[in-house]
Structures are given as structure tokens and as C-alpha cells.
Design a protein around this nucleic acid. Structure first.
Lengths: 195, 195
DNA sequence: CACCTATTATTAGCTACTACTAATTGTAAG
DNA sequence: CTTACAATTAGTAGTAGCTAATAATAGGTG
């Protein structure tokens, strides 16, 4: 029961709930938000969210269980965001595991470190959508599975929609990675450039 | 007796069809086997096969999409290695999905593209262990979820244990990423530097 | 013939909807 | 205060894809 929400807030909430649990029927959502089933339906229609059964089918059809494609999993940010000042700087932590490393040496694969740096850099940009344009990376020292990485990012320059973000990753005082990323904040323009 | 056999065969057939395509309703099965819907239902009940909607839910719940773990999944190489000449060049393909993209725009997150490029670059180096040292990345165009990326890597220079690998990633003739990676081949030395 | 199995038909009821109309409530402006 | 409009709720008819129960029919077999 989460009454006392504006229409917008409720719709946002419904979206979130459904994205987290696509198995929610209108009835259950109505109980959760303490609004009538009809209102929930209207919200769904306004937001273009399909009915529960169709959502379940979508999820089922997305099952990549028979896929051979090796891919990474989605994440909003890699690691844990522990401090952030939008537009200025941020800190994130990633505990590395054996899964992230080469079996042979136990050295963490470089793209995990980049992912930490890149997602942190993007998340400190105070904008709806940010995309990486150019990056210069330097891996200073190997990281071993089990070590905890601390990434610090800082906006070094900002001209228009172009941000230069520098990221330093350390583990136990020791610098393991530095990077300079040029990030672009984006409106809806890019969508039309598609083709 | 002939009837009995045909019944058994039909039930076997239904089982097979459903296991291959759980999205088949009783009606569709009835049309496929040219029996009435009631007969199909009886068969399902006799075999203990649940109704279509419950089958779909089962499939959907088996998907690992509800993971909250904030880390990337381990992979030996990101994408599918489709051609390789050790020490010279290689090609890898990655089919992008919604999971790899920002929800808002459907644009694939930059670190997935880097991961494809980086793991390909490392795998073409003809050595036991290879580590990324320095990298210069340039994201030329946004990649949209669903597009298939083709990465081509080439060893541009090789001095001692230092390899300069250039990687180009395209989707439909269109260049979306280029990178120059300096990769170091490693023996066992680094392991002892560990601290 | 009665008995049995397989199949098909019919009906009632269920969930989770779509699509629609209509009534009610809230709220802000004149 | 009233009027206007948006938001919400209620209700109806119809749908797919079922469950469950009951009945009818055709075709053997002892």
C-alpha cells in the first residue's frame, strides 16, 4: 500500500515493479498501489506496457538457455557506487573474484576494470543519457582475483555536452589502472541519427 | 489394439511437440494432430503436462534475467570467435541484446564493445598469457540492441613481448568502434611481482 | 446383449485480460 | 459557490485458454 502518489509517481512505480517482476497481474498491482484495477490498466495503456501474460511470453522467449553466444550480463553500474557528486566526482568499489580472472594466472581480465571505470564515469555525468566517445586506458599493474578495486572518477573538463572524466583505480594504495574518458551527454537526437 | 497404439503414439507426439515448443495451446495441438481439443486435454492430463500458460511461466522463471548481482559474468572470450590466425588476426561476432543496453535509448553500453575488442585482441596473441597494457578507444557510432557486431583484430606491430593490436568493430558496413591496444605477453615473471 | 474404451460434445466456472461506456470524485479557476 | 475538466472507479460485453464434471456416441470384445 503506497497511496498518496501523484499519477506520474504511480506510473513510474508501476513501471519499476513490473520491470522487477513481470509476473504481476493488474489485480496484484492494484492491491500493491491501492488503486482500482481500472486505473492500473489505464496506466499500463498510457505507458504502452503489455498485459502480464504477454510479458511472461516475452521473458520466456528471451531465454537464452540454448544460446551459444557468450555475452556479459546487464548491469546498471559495475561495482558498488559508494559516493557520488553528480557532475563532479564519484567512487565505486568492485570486489574481484576468480570468475573475473584468467584461470592460469588469477589475473583479472582487463575489461572488468574498464567496465568499472566506464560505468562509474558515465554515472557521475549529471544527464539522462551519457555515451562514451573516446578513451585512453593504461593498465599499470596486474590485479589478482580477490583484490578489491577502488575506482575514483573526476570530471576534469566540461565543454557543452562533452565531458572529460579521469578515472583512477587502486587496490591497497597501489594504482592499477588510469583512464581518461570523453563522455557525451545525449538528448534524443542520436535516436534519429540511427539508420 | 490399433486404436490403443495410435493413442500412445499421439501422446508421444504431443509430448515431443510441447517439449520443442511450449507455447502451443490445446487448440493448436488439436489442429496439428487432427483430434478434438478434449482429447488433447485428456492426453495432457494423463501425461501430467500442465497447461500452456503454466508451461510458459516455467520457462520464463528459468531465465536468469532476474539477477541482481552487480558483476559481469565470467567468459573466456566475449562474443563468438569465428576465425583466427594466431599472432596475426582474428574475427569475432557478438549479437547484442537489450540486456547489454541502456533501457532508455537501447544503446549498447560501451564496455560490452570494449570487452569484445579486448578479449579478441588477447586471444590472437600467440602466447600463454597476455595482458592489456594501454588502450586507445574510439566509439564512432552508437550500437543499438539487437545489432550484430563484427570485430576484426590485427597485430600491427610486435616488438619482444609487446604487441600493438588494432581492432575495428562494425555492424552492417558501419564502423562503430576502433581501438588500438598494447598487449603484453607474459611468462611467469609478473606472478612474482605480486607484492 | 451388456460392458468397456476412446473420443467428442456440452456446460459451468475461472483468470486475466481488451474495449468500451458511464458514473463518480477531486480539484482548480472563474 | 459553481462550473469545468481531469482522474478515478464501476460496470458491461466479449475473448483466450484453460479446469472440472457430465453426457453422448462409435467401435470393438467376451
Amino acid at each position: 500500500m503506497i497511496r498518496n502518489l501523484s499519477k506520474l509517481e504511480r506510473q513510474k512505480g508501476i513501471k519499476e515493479y513490473i520491470s522487477k517482476d513481470p509476473f504481476l497481474s493488474d489485480k496484484k498491482l492494484a492491491e500493491l498501489f491501492n488503486f482500482s484495477v481500472q486505473t492500473i490498466r489505464l496506466d499500463r495503456l498510457e505507458m504502452g506496457i503489455p498485459e502480464m501474460r504477454k510479458r511472461i511470453v516475452q521473458v520466456a522467449k528471451n531465454t537464452p538457455s540454448t544460446d551459444k553466444v557468450k555475452s556479459l550480463k546487464k548491469e546498471e553500474i559495475i561495482g558498488e557506487l559508494i559516493d557520488i557528486e553528480l557532475g563532479k566526482n564519484g567512487i565505486a568499489i568492485l570486489k574481484t573474484t576468480k570468475d573475473m580472472a584468467f584461470n592460469k594466472t588469477g589475473i583479472v581480465r582487463s575489461h572488468y576494470i574498464f567496465s568499472l571505470a566506464d560505468s562509474l564515469a558515465i554515472s557521475i555525468i549529471d544527464t539522462e543519457v551519457a555515451l562514451t566517445g573516446i578513451a585512453r586506458l593504461s593498465y599499470k599493474n596486474p590485479v589478482y582475483a580477490g583484490q578489491t578495486l577502488v575506482a575514483k572518477a573526476r570530471v576534469a573538463r566540461n565543454r557543452g555536452n562533452k565531458y572529460l572524466v579521469s578515472v583512477h583505480v587502486k587496490t591497497d594504495q597501489r594504482e592499477v589502472f588510469t583512464g581518461k574518458l570523453v563522455i557525451f551527454s545525449v538528448n534524443d537526437k542520436i535516436k534519429k541519427e540511427k539508420t
